[in-house]
Nucleic acid binder design. Structure first.
Lengths: 202, 202
DNA sequence: GGCGAAGTGGTACGGGTGTGCCAAATTTTA
DNA sequence: TAAAATTTGGCACACCCGTACCACTTCGCC
């Protein structure tokens, strides 16, 4: 049932609430953290801001999360998961060529927050692990769409193009026309008549 | 003489020192800012940290730079410029295929700082302008190396691969082997027998 | 020389931060 | 029901931040 085989087993630290209301509150805090991250970058994700926005007392954040870092890490994980799911859904509905439209339609600030945390993961082993999950997830989506193994060079190559164009658009806000063209070319290369990439069978 | 035609004409705000020592100090502050950025991300670039590290009084930072944002922006510009120059030098010496080696040899934290600011540029129009310069610079290097116009689809496509692999390596620290393979393939596509930029294969 | 501008550096203010503390309220268990 | 565990929320501490202020020194120039 669950399409996500490797979930966080149980993030340590902080209190894992045993009561229903507590679980709801914890989730609300996490959602709020993601929202704030999107709105103002991860500098905006402070205990106070999250608690206030969620309509909860300040101490709630320190109660459910061992530290700000942990809050951020879990928010990142959630963001990765939801974005992956959204993208997968869009692509299975509209195909890979429609990805620019998805990018255009998506909440830019949210993407920005995702990439912010992604880069930040380069300094934090915990976040790094989640960042890898993001990359792997994207690759897997492409692989499944193309019906190729995730290790196929063509898949990996296509992913780099998608990824770079995505980031570039989110950051630099250039017109999407060129991105569309490039993606089409890249797709053609990946699905085209070439059999050259032939896989690392591993 | 100057190989960089579009320099910052004169960053407004802050004092542009008229005396030699002042200019040296300003430059030292900027260098220190870049160093701190590399060491601890841009949250570590504070007035106090920069001043202390540079061996200057706190007020020096506010004297030479109108605000922290301006300091950060100029540090970003400098980082972009030096990294671009380094990369260009490396590639003209060793060729595009050696790029993974350059990436491996480069100061990872410095790259991390660059990408951090790059993503941050998505929220700040001033930085966004510099971010575009970074992308354009990379594309131009590739175009010159390949002897193609910077608008060529193959160039742009190759850039996306390079860029994504670069970021991925810096953030996720995966082994470089696969990146090397991918880059080789991408290069082959770009320089290969195809004339695909306009007319599609055969 | 002297004098105005440029540069210097010590200090202070107001504000926001993460987090620890602890008594009260609430829920679960016995 | 009573007792125990969990959850709550108000508060305060210590710290660091950006920046303004201002007496002081040094420099460029007439």
């Amino acid at each position: 049932m669950n399409p996500h085989p490797h979930q966080d087993p149980a993030p340590p630290g902080g209190h894992t609430p045993a009561q229903a209301r507590g679980r709801r509150r914890r989730a609300a805090l996490l959602d709020t953290a993601v929202t704030l991250l999107a709105e103002g970058g991860f500098a905006a994700v402070t205990h106070r801001a999250v608690a206030t926005r969620a309509g909860l007392p300040l101490a709630a954040t320190t109660y459910y999360f061992a530290s700000r870092d942990q809050l951020l890490a879990e928010a990142f994980a959630q963001l990765v998961q939801t974005e992956l799911a959204t993208t997968r859904a869009w692509i299975t509905r509209h195909g890979l060529t429609a990805l620019p439209d998805q990018i255009a339609a998506a909440d830019r600030r949210r993407q920005l927050g995702l990439w912010e945390l992604y880069v930040h993961a380069g300094r934090d082993p915990v976040l790094q692990h989640i960042a890898r999950r993001w990359t792997d997830g994207c690759v897997r989506i492409i692989a499944e769409t193309l019906g190729l193994p995730a290790t196929d060079t063509r898949v990996r190559l296509l992913y780099t193009t998608v990824s770079a164009l995505w980031l570039e658009h989110v950051v630099e806000q250039r017109p999407l026309d060129q991105a569309r063209t490039l993606l089409t070319h890249a797709l053609h290369h990946a699905t085209g008549p070439h059999p050259p990439a032939t896989g690392d069978t591993r």
